[in-house]
Design a protein around this nucleic acid. Structure first.
Lengths: 68, 68
DNA sequence: GGGTTTTGTCAAGTATATTTTACAAATTTT
DNA sequence: AAAATTTGTAAAATATACTTGACAAAACCC
């Protein structure tokens, strides 16, 4: 899977660390790291939570990205 | 979780059975049924595959729906 | 109204998403 | 350049997505 740079840059734009985002989203820092690095295939509920924390929509952060 | 009626109606619009969609998406009919009925929390890759099979985007089928 | 296809659901199993603990490399701050 | 923060990664454990097989109710055709 490809890295999710859209997510990484949306997070950077809000000046959040992986750990801070993880807390907002109720997940571990490692999970956030893995999602950004495309190491796995997150749940849609997690994607939605990430989108809301970053003020983006699913299409903006997850469409076409992991579409392989 | 709430039922995903957007997905159900997008599938109906293409006159596909759950089983036919399941085959296109390489998953079991039970999984499609569970997703439509909101019985669980699918993977983003599965959501993307479903969107592509139905000619829709993530925002169209999965945004706000399961946002709880 | 019987036959066929479609859908809901359930129980038991397998695969994989996510956690926990932990350490080192990289980056930022002072 | 040392201290502090952020990030990549890994192994073992746990939770949960997804499968397989199967049965009954509902919906569609004849």
């Amino acid at each position: 899977m490809a890295k999710n740079l859209k997510m990484k840059s949306a997070r950077a734009a809000l000046d959040l660390s992986q750990d801070e985002l993880a807390k907002k989203v109720q997940v571990t820092r490692q999970t956030i790291s893995a999602v950004e690095n495309g190491d796995y295939n997150p749940t849609i509920n997690l994607c939605i939570a990430i989108c809301k924390a970053l003020g983006k929509t699913l299409d903006e952060l997850f469409w076409e990205e992991e579409s392989k």
